[in-house]
Every structure is written in structure tokens, then in C-alpha cells.
């Protein structure tokens, strides 16, 4: 029988709480997380136990690490594994949480976000410039730039999305729900802008069709969503 297995992560920025809850459920079945693995965790077969899990983000040098992990073990949290600045801990249920206030939770997300912020901003800018370049050129040069732009888009979009989610988590922790909700609209706006640009610039028919379909697919749910949320907001205020 295999004594290790792989559990996929939903991406810590997107589903930290869900990941931790899933790890707990696996522990109850006797599968305990041992390590981070590419986009997930390695679980190891053992005795069934009720463990709770937490992650923290902190950039540490070797000397700082000793003190940092000592704080956790003194509070009843066992260090399991680290990957870069991400550290995974386990404790028995009832152990006090690793964060005891809202301010440091916000800082945890900020810490993660600020390390990725400039990479993502530069990637997005380069991608946008490449697309503009692709629109302004033609022939072989245009083809080269389009290929580069596609490659950059494939990298830039997930990274930008992750960073936005991290900041969304941060603002949620700070209680700035307005900002947090704003981020949700960004992907819709983005698709909308791209579709409109394609409509305006490209005159090939299949692309035009595709763009119109995209535009329709996005606009309709958005309008429905807007009306629904307005409706709930108004009703909420009446109540």
C-alpha cells in the first residue's frame, strides 16, 4: 500500500481557509501533511488524529528563523514545513490562533502581496505594451510581437489575479469591504475592455463574432448581478 499521497491546493491566496480545513479532514482519516509539493501538499499515512492547521508568511534569515519557530512551538504550534516565505503549522484543536488580532492578519497578506506586487505590475505593463505594439505593426514583426504578447499574457494574468486576491484578503481583514468588493469587478472590466478593443481594431469577421459573444456573455450577467445587488442593498437598508 502506498503510504504517501498528493493533495492539490486551491492556491493559498484563493483558498487558504479551505485548504486548512481539508488538511484537517485528511488528518482525521489518518493522512497527515508532511510537506509542500508543487501546487499542493504531500500527505503521509499515520494514525488518525484531530489536528488544526495554519499558514503564515514571513521572510526569515537563518537566525531569525530560530526565534520565529520558537514562538510557535511555545504556543503549541508544531512547524511542519516551509516553502520560501510560507510556513505551515499544526496544533491540537483549542490551541489559540497564530494571529490574535486583525491588524497582524492584514499585515500577513500585505507581506505576501508586496513581495509580488512589482513583478506583477511590470508584467502587466509589458504585456499591455506588447499588445499595443502588435496593433501598430504588421507582417512578420507583428507575428513575433503577437507571439510574445500571448506568452506574456499567459504569465501576467494569473500573477496579477493572485496579487489582486491577496490584496482582497488584506482589505477584508482590515474591514475595508468596499475595496475588497471592487477587486471582484476587475476581471469583468478587463474582459470588457479587451472585447471592446477587439471590436474596434480588428475587422476580421470570426474574431468580431467571438468578441461580440464574449461581450454579450459578460455584459448580461453583469447587468443582472448589478440589479440583484442593488436590490439586496435597498432591501437591506429597509430592514
Amino acid at each position: 500500500m502506498r503510504d504517501t499521497k498528493y493533495m492539490m491546493s486551491g492556491g493559498l491566496a484563493f483558498s487558504e481557509d479551505k485548504d486548512m480545513e481539508t488538511l484537517r479532514k485528511y488528518s482525521l482519516k489518518g493522512w497527515h501533511v508532511r510537506d509542500f509539493k508543487f501546487m499542493g501538499y504531500t500527505l503521509e499515512k499515520g494514525e488518525s488524529a484531530d489536528y488544526i492547521y495554519s499558514v503564515d508568511y514571513q521572510t526569515l534569515n537563518k537566525e531569525e528563523a530560530e526565534e520565529y519557530f520558537d514562538f510557535f512551538s511555545a504556543s503549541g504550534w508544531t512547524h511542519i514545513s516551509s516553502q520560501g516565505n510560507t510556513h505551515l503549522f499544526r496544533a491540537l484543536p483549542g490551541t489559540k490562533p497564530i494571529h490574535s488580532d486583525r491588524e497582524t492578519v492584514a499585515e500577513k497578506h500585505n507581506h505576501l502581496g508586496s513581495s509580488m506586487k512589482w513583478t506583477s505590475i511590470s508584467l502587466v505593463l509589458i504585456t499591455m505594451l506588447l499588445w499595443v505594439g502588435a496593433l501598430l505593426t504588421d507582417g512578420g514583426l507583428q507575428l513575433t510581437i503577437i507571439v510574445m504578447a500571448v506568452i506574456f499574457s499567459v504569465v501576467a494574468i494569473p500573477i496579477a489575479w493572485t496579487v489582486m486576491t491577496i490584496y482582497q484578503n488584506k482589505w477584508k481583514a482590515e474591514g475595508k469591504m468596499g475595496f475588497a468588493n471592487l477587486i471582484r469587478i476587475v476581471p469583468i472590466l478587463f474582459i470588457l475592455c479587451v472585447s471592446v478593443t477587439i471590436l474596434l481594431v480588428v475587422d476580421h469577421n470570426p474574431l468580431l463574432m467571438l468578441a461580440s459573444m464574449l461581450l454579450g456573455a459578460v455584459t448580461l450577467p453583469t447587468i443582472v448581478w448589478l440589479i440583484m445587488s442593488l436590490y439586496h442593498k435597498l432591501r437591506g437598508e429597509e430592514a
Binding site: Q58, F71, D101, E107, K108
Partner: peptide, 23 residues
Amino acid sequence: IMSLIEERTKGAITIGPASMYTI
């Protein structure tokens, strides 16, 4: 620091290790 705070407030206030380190 963590145990002093807990002791002097009779357990009403605790500081988590991640908060502690950050602060």
C-alpha cells in the same frame, strides 16, 4: 511576554505567535 500577558490578564488576553513576531 506571551505568558506574562496571559497571566496578568488571567487569560482574558492572549497573543498568537504570528502576531507576536510581526509586532
